[in-house]
Amino acid sequence: MSFGVARDPQRDFNPYDDYRHLAIQARFRRPERLKEKAIELTFIPDLHLEQERRRNDRPPRIGFISLRREAQGILSLPADALPSLLPMLIGEKFKYVVLHGTALRYQQAGVHSFRFEMQINDDEWPPDG
């Protein structure tokens, strides 16, 4: 997290820069060729994604993962979701993050959706293709 005076208040109506993000260290479970590879997922809360503000949005994706150098993912998160998400993570209730998106191409993939899960049944997933 970081907080400070905005460098360019003309660009944004907010006189402050406020970066609250959530970084999660994880390991792939799927696809099989990436199983157990470490990845850092960074969730960036965005006030624009709160329910009332996003009605007319047509986003192509909500984030991406990259396997170049170290595996990492950058994902947008509605800012109002963070207060309910943090206690579940601190209490270790969520064990998995499930990402859905495009196939890897040139070591990158777009993410269309994600969800946090307490448990996963591997039998529910289609085989790797």
Rank of each mutant, 00 (worst) to 15 (best):
A81E: 04
N56E: 15
R61L: 06
P83I: 08
P126S: 08
Q51Y: 12
L77K: 05
I44A: 05
P127Q: 08
R11M: 15
N14G: 04
Q108S: 11
A71E: 05
A103M: 04
R11I: 14
A81M: 10
H21K: 08
N121D: 15
R68S: 09
G91S: 15
R105Y: 06
T42R: 07
S113E: 06
A109S: 01
P31I: 11
R30P: 00
H48G: 14
Y106V: 01
Y96D: 01
T42D: 10
D123T: 03
R30D: 01
I74M: 09
V111T: 03
I65F: 02
G63K: 07
Y19G: 00
Q51M: 12
Y19V: 04
V97I: 14
M118T: 14
M1K: 13
R11K: 13
L67Y: 02
I39T: 07
Q72W: 03
P9G: 04
L49Y: 03
A38T: 10
I62P: 01
Q72C: 05
L86V: 13
R7G: 12
F64H: 10
Q25T: 13
D128P: 04
P83H: 06
I44S: 06
Q107G: 01
D12A: 09
E40R: 14
R68C: 05
D123H: 01
I65T: 03
P31K: 07
H48S: 14
R69E: 15
R7A: 12
W125V: 03
R30M: 01
R7N: 12
D123E: 11
I90W: 14
I65C: 02
Q119E: 11
E92A: 13
R54Y: 07
P83Q: 09
A6F: 04
A71D: 05
D8N: 09
L89N: 12
F3M: 05
N14F: 13
P83N: 08
I120V: 12
I62V: 10
G129N: 07
P83E: 10
K35M: 01
I62D: 04
R30T: 05
S2W: 00
D17V: 01
A81P: 00
Y96A: 03
R11A: 15
P15V: 09
R54T: 11
R20V: 06
F114D: 00
L77P: 04
N14C: 08
H100F: 08
L41Y: 09
D80W: 11
R69L: 15
F28A: 11
I90F: 15
I90D: 14
R27Q: 13
Q108T: 14
F3Q: 02
D122F: 09
S76D: 09
N121F: 05
Y16P: 00
E36V: 07
L77F: 10
P31S: 09
L82C: 03
I24A: 02
D122Y: 06
R61Q: 08
G73W: 03
N56K: 13
V98D: 00
P31D: 09
P15Y: 01
L104T: 04
G4P: 08
E70V: 14
